[in-house]
């Protein structure tokens, strides 16, 4: 025996009775709580979208996507520079904002706020809208690579093993609602974003348009012949 090891002591009959009662009561309440929780959770999971459709979070600086995208014609990759390079799309550094807003936007409250923050070396606490759990590793670059370029719109794959030149109607419609089957379209890298993010350029407040839950990912992967091995995303 190793000194200091835990020694088992026999319980007294009184202790046995107490533990017994506690056990039965505990088991009962556990079952009750478990049933209750199951109902709540299953009802919750019946919801299609975690963040509600109708509203996105309030940002510390009300960045107007429509002004920059629709009015000025900047494309997504102008600011979200890493999206074609790596895993994260990334929020641009305030320095990038200042390339224009050093001179543009004098007198606008939001812009003055931002300049002040940058001058103080304080980070802007953007609220993240699209978020997958920690155990999911989503890579933007690979998805953009798959969908960008010249593609023919199809209903079903002509050759299930060779899909590089084709895009399914479902995805195509998300990029451009006016396309039809058989049409050939050239998809720019920045256009691919709308497959999952919707038309962010027209959103005053950015909100999530797809569930982005595992079912959503797997459906799309399956439809597009992408790997569905667990370690594609989970590691």
């Amino acid at each position: 025996m190793i000194p200091g090891d835990f020694q088992v002591k026999k319980p007294t009959s009184k202790q046995l009775a107490i533990f017994g009662t506690l056990g039965v009561v505990g088991l009962g309440s556990f079952v009750a709580i478990a049933l209750g929780l199951t109902w709540i959770v299953s009802a919750w999971l019946g919801m299609p979208v975690i963040f509600a459709h109708d509203q996105g979070p309030t940002q510390p600086i009300a960045f107007p996507h429509p002004t920059h995208v629709q009015d000025l014609g900047l494309d997504c990759t102008f600011c979200h520079r890493n999206v074609t390079e790596g895993a994260a799309a990334t929020i641009p550094s305030a320095g990038l904002c200042l390339t224009c807003h050093q001179v543009v936007g004098d007198g606008l409250e939001q812009i003055e706020n931002m300049r002040e923050q940058v001058a103080d070396d304080r980070p802007i606490d953007w609220v993240r809208v699209h978020r997958v759990p920690d155990h999911v590793h989503f890579v933007h670059e690979a998805h953009i690579r798959r969908f960008s370029g010249v593609k023919t719109v199809v209903e079903e794959w002509t050759d299930p093993n060779e899909q590089a030149g084709e895009i399914r109607l479902g995805e195509a419609l998300r990029i451009d609602p006016s396309v039809s089957v058989g049409q050939t379209m050239e998809i720019a890298e920045a256009q691919v974003c709308s497959v999952c993010h919707g038309d962010v350029g027209s959103m005053a407040t950015v909100e999530q348009v797809r569930p982005l839950k595992m079912g959503d990912c797997v459906d799309c992967h399956r439809d597009n012949g992408a790997p569905t091995d667990c370690t594609t995303c989970h590691y």
Binding site: P133, H135, C230, T231, H234
Partner: peptide, 14 residues
């Protein structure tokens, strides 16, 4: 489970 790359995989979320 075992994946196609010969790896014995542990899926944390499962």
């Amino acid at each position: 489970y075992h994946n196609s790359e010969g790896l014995n995989v542990q899926v944390y979320n499962r």
